[in-house]
């Protein structure tokens, strides 16, 4: 179904579909970070680190684009590791504000230093994905449909990886660090190391989503990764709910459809943030456990009935 999806859509909707695919990766990586109980406000800037790094590698060192994307993700993870030393001295609210400050500093550095970051105007003419020929199929990555398939494959693989990480021993420890950090510590778990690990892994995936974005739109600037974008990610995660793997993804898809398709096509251009804000407030007031709780309510009674049968 996901493969057939783009063919029924208009060109601009296909473009939105590409962004949506990239954002799904971003919000899923954000959930991986929140597994240990810390909410960051710097995640979008980390995504930007991946985007800038990948764009610069391909531009200045002539690294082939797919390789530079992987390197961009690695750079984001590396930067996250450096940031984790000061940031994980804090917890809770202080971590939230601290991550925000760290992110803003990075963003201001991009703005301040024209070389190599391009200053306020950012980087332009970023290398696109090279076309390639697969016999019967020819991929021209300027076409949204082709890039969509490419992004979908990458994102699907990453989601599978994240799913495996969460199910693994390491992932279970993340949960333990969140809900029982004192107990986990007493049981010999290095709580801070696991917090750092979750932060670094999540940042790597966020960096990859940034790289995917940069080589698609071809131009990035410091404002592409500002607080407003962070608010969107936060909203997706909260409206969707973060206790399940699919919750944030669900939130991202539902809100993107609401925002881009319904409101834009219905001609509420100026009122979009207004409605978005009201939806955010309504969902936190009336659906504090997120959209995932609705799904669970729909699915669970059936499962319980199955169990009741002798």
């Amino acid at each position: 179904m996901l493969l057939a999806l783009p063919h029924g859509l208009s060109f601009s909707q296909q473009e939105i579909l590409v962004f949506l695919t990239i954002n799904v990766l971003l919000v899923a990586s954000y959930r991986l970070l929140t597994l240990t109980g810390e909410w960051s406000l710097g995640h979008v800037v980390i995504m930007g680190v991946g985007a800038y790094a990948s764009a610069l590698y391909s531009k200045h060192f002539g690294v082939p684009v797919p390789v530079s994307m992987a390197l961009g993700a690695g750079t984001a993870a590396l930067i996250a590791m450096f940031l984790s030393y000061p940031l994980f001295r804090m917890k809770g609210f202080y971590f939230l504000i601290g991550s925000f400050a760290a992110g803003e500093i990075i963003r201001l550095l991009w703005k301040r230093f024209r070389d190599p970051f391009g200053g306020p105007k950012g980087l332009k003419r970023i290398e696109p994905m090279p076309d390639f020929d697969l016999g019967i199929w020819q991929f021209d990555f300027f076409e949204p449909v082709c890039y969509y398939y490419f992004a979908l494959a990458v994102v699907a693989f990453c989601l599978w990886l994240m799913w495996r990480i969460e199910r693994s021993h390491v992932g279970l420890t993340f949960h333990a660090v969140h809900w029982q950090d004192k107990l986990a510590e007493a049981a010999g778990v290095n709580v801070r190391a696991y917090r750092t690990l979750a932060f670094v892994i999540a940042s790597g995936f966020a960096g990859l989503s940034g790289a995917l974005l940069a080589h698609y739109i071809g131009t990035i600037n410091p404002n592409s990764f500002d607080v407003e974008m962070m608010v969107f990610v936060l909203t997706w995660a909260i409206v969707g709910g973060t206790t399940t793997f699919y919750g944030p993804i669900l939130g991202c898809i539902v809100l993107t459809i609401l925002n881009e398709i319904v409101l834009r096509e219905m001609g509420f251009e100026q009122a979009r943030p207004l409605i978005y804000g009201l939806v955010l407030i309504a969902s936190i007031l009336f659906l504090p456990k997120g959209l995932e709780s609705v799904v669970q309510r729909l699915v669970r009674p059936r499962a319980e009935k199955m169990e009741e049968r002798p």
């Binding site: 936060l234 909260i238 009122a271 943030p273 207004l274 978005y276 804000g277 955010l280 407030i281």
Partner: peptide, 14 residues
């Protein structure tokens, strides 16, 4: 905190 972010967007849009 999240609700106040929602309120921020409403005020800005207004």
């Amino acid at each position: 905190l999240v609700a106040s972010i929602g309120f921020l967007m409403v005020l800005q849009a207004l």
